[in-house]
Nucleic acid binder design. Structure first.
Lengths: 128, 128
DNA sequence: GTTTTATTTCTACGTCACGTAGAAATTGCT
DNA sequence: AGCAATTTCTACGTGACGTAGAAATAAAAC
């Protein structure tokens, strides 16, 4: 259980971008903006979602454990449970975890990493 | 586009296990066997799928580019396009790729890797 | 070569996730 | 109390996936 739909991801991206908790309305506006400002190439044009749509998505994201909401304030405020980096890293572990041959996977993975990233990794791993 | 359904995954696991190309019938049998031998805990019991079901799944996997079939022989023979390790590594790159903050993700990822694996990674990354 | 049998392709249905949103219920404000 | 904003319920369309029968095709048998 991990994958997100297109809109779900768009919402998460917004939540991950602004570190502050946001309301459904705010998010709806930002979504409209993003969609509109997204390079004018032949894409899906500004859709201007209904607030209820955003609310539904937020609920689903909450159920998935990706979003947390403050129920106290009246326009509930939503925020991501973990940072995008954390979430992505978790995802990577999930993918890796389902493999019985973890070492082999890591080998292949490292094999196709950019030089810069390899360097980063060395740094991160430090000396034993 | 990457995730597999439950049955699709089961089939891929079989294809990845046996390195030889297999026919739909063979796979159906192996599936029945796996299902049956899977520890007897209260799970979904032996379903004994129809061959057409397996064929359908194989077609879908082919469309997704995970499976390749020899159309020459009469009972077509199917095999995985890439090894499980390769596929999993690819998946990891896919997940990582969709992040604008790759470095941060890698940091988190490394952060929660077992010591043994960290060691493996150091080895793989070679001298610094 | 025509009938029979194995194999593959087509078509289809139920379920579930997701995008989408109106209707209904809830709650805060005046 | 009455109104307006907000949230929850309910619902529909679409597409993926598990599942498989019906139809087409090809190989084998006679």
């Amino acid at each position: 259980m991990a994958s997100l739909g297109e809109l779900e991801r768009a919402v998460m991206d917004l939540l991950w971008a602004g570190q502050e908790a946001a309301t459904a309305n705010t998010l709806r506006d930002r979504l409209a903006q993003s969609t509109r400002s997204e390079d004018g190439s032949a894409g899906h044009e500004g859709k201007d979602l209904a607030v209820t749509t955003v609310l539904t998505v937020l609920s689903r994201l909450e159920r998935k454990g990706l979003v947390e909401r403050e129920r106290g304030t009246r326009p509930h405020r939503y925020q991501a449970v973990s940072s995008r980096a954390d979430h992505t890293a978790e995802l990577m572990h999930e993918v890796l975890g389902s493999a019985p041959d973890r070492e082999a996977v890591l080998a292949r993975f490292i094999g196709s990493v950019t030089d810069t990233e390899a360097e980063t990794l060395r740094k991160l791993l430090g000396r034993s």
